[in-house]
Computed example of a mutant assay.
Amino acid sequence: MTQTRTRSTFAPPVMEARRWLEGVSFPDDRPLINVSQAAPVDPPHPDLRRAMAGAALENDAAHLYGPVLGLPDLRAELAGQISRHYHGHVTAEQVAITSGCNQAFAAAISALTTQGDEVILPTPWYFNHKMWLDMAGVQSVALPTDAGLLPDPARAEALITPRTRAIALVTPNNPGGVEYPADLVRDFHDLAAQHGLRLLLDETYRDFDSREGAPHPLFSLPDWDRVLVHLYSFSKAYRLTGHRVGALATDPALLAEVEKFLDTVAICPNQIGQHAALWGMRHLQGWLAGERAEILDRRAAISDAMPALRAQGWELLGLGAYFAYLAHPFDMPSDELARRLVPEAGVLLLPGTMFMPEGDAAGKRQVRVAFANLDRAGIELLFGRLANLPFS
């Protein structure tokens, strides 16, 4: 079989996990608990849906091609929000709107790399980043993290070669949940600047960071856009996953290269989704604060429920945003465990093997729980099932 771009990488992990459900029935007294995907299942706020309907009915331009880099008003609104939140200075010309944050990453990689280049990814990594690098012909250079799932800049520096083009970080992290300290993010920025690299900083989950205020100082640095490529998503904040609206902030010269990719792949971002994101940013900040508080409470519920799992040998490696990252105690690899959990416990989660290089021993002991769609009662039920597994 001919090797192609898509055959160079693995099957989409969430789709693979869903196939484990085929042929399995779940009794009424033990329904499936699905913690496999980090996406809200509830629809957007009713007022936001009404605004979307209004745009569809009353704004003829919303049904036509729009600017490749996104609606000017949305670019300006996001630039202003970033400037306020991070105490920096960002202009609309430094912002592009994309068809989701995954496309923002793909566009940035396409603008920064060519065949055979390298990008450093901390492990456990976000699998879609790894998949795109594979399909782009770019080598993913694994950077193992420490016991707290934090990457080490010194260790990253040792991995830099003449083919290295960027370092990619995700904070709050997917899959680990950990929030990278501000000093650590700054150290990676300085490392990238010293070596003429770009720092790709994916902050898809920044709206659910437990810290108040700016989580890092990068936007306040002079000429921040010469090193930083900032990635963001409206999907989680405003429940717009199906409308595919993300963003990228960096220097206008790089955005001119990004525009070539975006124009070729999608021509323009989803128009209705962009109007929704703009309306949400202008009208739903109070509601979003409540959503954040609820996620933080669910995070606290994970901490409250951990003693029962620790007693069975589980470890909590990382916790934050939508994720709990756990080490299991069983004498089997995590991919086998994850498959067995479906029929034997009514739980669908992702194994650590999906976030690690093939054969990595650490991934075989780890699992990811995406808990954002479980309330406290659901979290207690999940942890009760995990604490009472019949495995040894």
Rank of each mutant, 00 (worst) to 15 (best):
G176S: 15
E179P: 00
A53P: 00
E336F: 01
E336R: 14
G70C: 12
Q274C: 06
R186N: 05
L121N: 06
V178S: 01
P357I: 03
A96I: 06
Q194K: 12
I97S: 04
D251H: 13
L309I: 04
Y86C: 02
H87W: 08
P217Q: 10
A56F: 09
F383R: 04
V245D: 07
M281W: 05
A107S: 15
L382F: 06
T161G: 13
E315Q: 14
A387Y: 06
L159R: 11
F188M: 01
A147Y: 04
L112M: 12
P122K: 00
P31M: 08
R282Y: 02
L149G: 07
V347R: 08
S210L: 06
D117H: 11
L201M: 04
L64A: 13
L254R: 10
Y322S: 15
L319M: 00
L184A: 02
L21N: 07
R340H: 09
T164P: 07
H328A: 00
I379Y: 09
G363D: 09
M135E: 13
S110K: 11
P222R: 05
A372P: 01
D28R: 12
A154P: 03
S220Y: 04
L197H: 01
V119N: 07
D225R: 02
G66W: 03
A108G: 10
A156G: 04
V367F: 07
V342C: 07
K260I: 10
V41T: 13
R340S: 12
H216D: 14
A324H: 03
H195L: 10
R365D: 09
A61K: 13
E257F: 05
E358Y: 10
R310L: 10
F391H: 11
A256W: 00
R18W: 05
G313F: 04
G66I: 10
D73T: 13
F26E: 07
P13D: 04
L341T: 08
A300Q: 13
T250C: 14
L191V: 03
P333Y: 03
L248G: 00
L348A: 06
S99Y: 09
T171C: 06
L389Q: 02
R7E: 14
F105G: 04
F355W: 09
L337K: 10
E358V: 10
M1G: 15
T145A: 05
A305I: 05
R376S: 08
L191Y: 09
R385W: 00
N59S: 10
I120Q: 11
D335L: 07
D207G: 00
N270Q: 05
F105K: 00
A237G: 11
T91C: 04
V347I: 15
A338T: 08
D183W: 02
L112R: 07
A62N: 09
L69G: 08
C268Y: 06
H275V: 02
R165Y: 09
D251V: 01
Q115P: 00
E179M: 05
I160S: 11
L199A: 08
L197V: 03
G313L: 10
A17W: 02
A293E: 14
A38F: 03
E77D: 13
D117L: 01
F330K: 05
G363R: 04
L112C: 10
F234R: 03
D42E: 15
A276M: 11
A247T: 01
I272T: 09
D331C: 05
M354F: 06
L159W: 12
G286S: 13
H283E: 13
Q103S: 13
D202G: 07
